[in-house]
């Protein structure tokens, strides 16, 4: 196996010139790609930080510790702290059911998991307003019992859960599908209980994929705008998350403060990209190691 691969490598290098483009084509394509990405990704990113510091570091930090901003940061963290763990539990159980068993209705469940990706964020907010709003199906009952979901924190959490619903499950299903059931079966045959097998066999083998899903889920949870905007009611210091706070400041022409708040979320996005790349490289390395081990055995 290993011998085969290396000869293949040597052969391709020898006739390389026939299967690649002339240098000028390569250089122009690279230039086009880099200019496109610079224009659409790098320039907006730089603009966020530039505008945030346009009135100096003092204004920057003052606009972040201001009470409404601080409250928005805390609410954003709270919404993510509730919705991410719930979606992790859902993602793991859905992936367990879908990949370890064969049952009727599996395809329907997979479609249902994908659905929130196809729904506009505005519609995601709207469905909860129609259920729990004053005019909604459960509105009168909630009012009688003095419960508030829409224009309050529970609505924000619900909308956040909806838009981040597929992330963990979507990462885990292909990964666990590929791993199959043989390790779990071996563990159970050797006398481990179901939960022992889950914690000691399954979780270690999916931990990187799980972390990857959590990172993406968290980024979306903290940055969601459309769905949260519909259910929040925009009450300052009460139901404003960080993205909504950015919008209010921007519409009040407080650009420096708005971009200061935006720079926190942009920083979070950059951290997300770094962690995501590290996890991808880790995954590739694990795979290569496994392939090498398999090649040595055969």
């Amino acid at each position: 196996m290993a011998g085969n691969v290396s000869t293949l490598g040597r052969r391709t290098t020898r006739i390389n010139h026939a299967v690649t483009e002339p240098l000028w084509v390569q250089l122009s394509l690279i230039t086009v790609a880099l200019v496109f990405l610079a224009l659409f990704l790098v320039v907006p990113l730089v603009a966020v930080f530039k505008e945030a510091f346009s009135k100096g570091a003092e204004v920057y930090f003052a606009s972040l510790v201001e009470p409404d901003a601080w409250h928005a940061i805390k609410l954003t963290l709270l919404a993510a702290a509730i919705s991410v763990p719930l979606n992790v539990i859902f993602g793991v159980s859905a992936a367990w059911a879908i990949t370890k068993f064969r049952f009727r209705g599996k395809q329907a469940l997979i479609t249902l998991i994908d659905l929130p990706f196809a729904v506009s964020p505005v519609v995601a907010g709207l469905i909860y307003v129609l259920l729990f709003g004053a005019q909604g199906w459960l509105g009168p009952w909630l009012a009688d019992n003095d419960l508030k979901i829409i224009f309050a924190v529970p609505g924000i959490v619900l909308a956040t859960i909806f838009v981040t619903f597929p992330f963990v499950a979507r990462e885990l299903i292909p990964l666990m599908e590929e791993q199959g059931t043989s390790y779990e079966e071996a563990s159970l045959t050797l006398g481990a209980s179901g939960w022992q097998t889950f914690w000691r066999v399954t979780i270690p083998s999916i931990k990187w994929g799980l972390l990857y899903g959590i990172i993406l889920c968290n980024a979306r949870a903290m940055g969601e705008f459309g769905a949260v905007s519909v259910v929040s009611g925009h009450i300052r210091g009460q139901t404003n998350t960080l993205p909504l706070h950015i919008e209010i400041l921007y519409n009040e022409y407080q650009f420096a403060a708005s971009f200061a708040a935006a720079s926190i979320l942009a920083g979070l996005a950059l951290v997300t990209l770094v962690v995501k790349s590290l996890l991808e490289w880790q995954h590739t390395r694990d795979r290569e190691k496994a392939a090498r081990a398999a090649a040595q055995q055969s």
Binding site: L41, P44, L45, A47, V48, E51, P121, L216, A219, M222, G223, E224, F225, G226, P243, L244, I246, E247, Y250, S258, F259, A262, L265, A266, L268, A269, L270, T272, L273, K276
Partner: peptide, 14 residues
């Protein structure tokens, strides 16, 4: 992947 990670409101104002 930046557009996946960057909140849409931030992209909008930028």
């Amino acid at each position: 992947d930046l557009p996946f990670a960057l909140p849409t409101a931030v992209a909008g104002i930028a």
